[in-house]
């Protein structure tokens, strides 16, 4: 454990959280529309995984904001995307669920549950074929581990022996349905363990996530084989901006919040003198400014011209 890592963790987690809180606010003001899936509470999982994985290619489902931020994509481009502006990372055509940036090896932002997992197997295959060594990581929710896409991908990744990290963020719920009501296993890593090495970790602890993912990265690169991590985490907010039913008890939410990943990090880091109060305050200020600038950028950016509707359908336009 070192100081600079702890500093990075704090910066990205704080940036991710403030970004989403602000996105929530802007949604309520009507500046953002559609579905807005927030990952508040899951920052330890998202930031730890991205930083732990380092270089390489990355796929995720629609709960993609904090991953994109940890990946280093500018909050300005992301906020502008949420505002539907032409300056957004997907030109305002994708919105919250569809952040794409090939420059950052970030392949979405997919809104069809489980559909991106086979893509990751395919990309890992291509990497292996082309002799490139960076691995591929695919993040997905607990809900997708019951789909055919998931099982087919486990099998094929093992058959092809590709450098792919399956990263399952188990927040226990798929919308309003708790995982144990629709899955034969509550411990999801068990679904993978006959195909590859599969482990379960505490996703509320960014250090643990980071450590597990970086070890996994080493493994897939050196062995050229797939690997499976299940991170246990929790989303504080509704599935999207609103849930239409009650399915979680306030008590459950309270217990989860006691393990808040940011508080958790600070507690540990202060105890081991990895972070100082001054540093944290400085980051808070910096983050506040960055978010303010991102919103300003989004507000001041133009909407796409109407012709944009017909663009980007084919490469040859």
């Amino acid at each position: 454990m070192n100081k600079s890592l702890a500093e990075k963790f704090y910066y990205y987690m704080k940036l991710g959280r403030e970004f989403e809180l602000r996105a929530k606010e802007e949604y309520m003001k009507g500046n953002i529309g559609g579905f807005l899936h927030l990952a508040i509470g899951e920052e330890g999982t998202h930031v730890g995984a991205i930083l732990g994985f380092g270089n390489g290619e990355f796929f995720v489902h629609y709960r993609d904001h904090v991953y994109a931020i940890a990946r280093g994509i500018s909050p300005k481009l992301l906020m502008a995307e949420l505002f539907g502006k032409i300056t957004g990372v997907s030109k305002g055509k994708g919105g919250s669920m569809h952040f794409y940036s090939s420059k950052f090896n970030f392949y979405g932002g997919n809104a069809i549950v489980g559909a991106h997992i086979p893509h990751a197997v395919g990309l890992a295959y291509a990497k292996k074929y082309l002799g490139k060594s960076d691995g591929v990581m695919v993040a997905f929710g607990d809900g997708s581990t019951n789909s055919g896409n998931f099982y087919e991908s486990l099998n094929l990744a093992a058959v092809y022996q590709v450098p792919l990290l399956f990263f399952c963020e188990n927040n226990y719920y798929a919308i309003g349905t708790r995982i144990d009501r629709v899955s034969a296993f509550k411990d999801l890593y068990k679904k993978a363990k006959d195909y590859m090495i599969a482990i379960q970790i505490d996703g509320m602890d960014v250090f643990e996530v980071y450590r597990a993912v970086s070890l996994a990265k080493e493994y897939i690169q050196e062995e050229g084989k797939p690997y499976f991590i299940e991170a246990l985490t929790y989303r504080y907010e509704s599935h999207s901006m609103s849930d239409s039913g009650d399915y979680r008890s306030p008590r459950e939410l309270k217990i989860a919040k006691e393990k808040d990943p940011i508080d958790n990090l600070l507690k540990k880091a202060f105890k081991e003198s990895l972070l100082t109060k001054e540093f944290v305050e400085e980051i808070d200020r910096k983050v506040e400014i960055e978010i303010e600038e991102a919103v300003e950028f989004a507000l001041n950016s133009k909407e796409p011209d109407l012709e944009e509707l017909y663009k980007d359908i084919f490469c040859e336009d």
Binding site: G84, E303, P304, E308, L309
Partner: peptide, 13 residues
């Protein structure tokens, strides 16, 4: 065309 996220374009589509 596919349906865009931006509201103005969406209504235009």
């Amino acid at each position: 065309t596919p349906t865009p996220y931006n509201r103005k374009l969406e209504l235009f589509s």
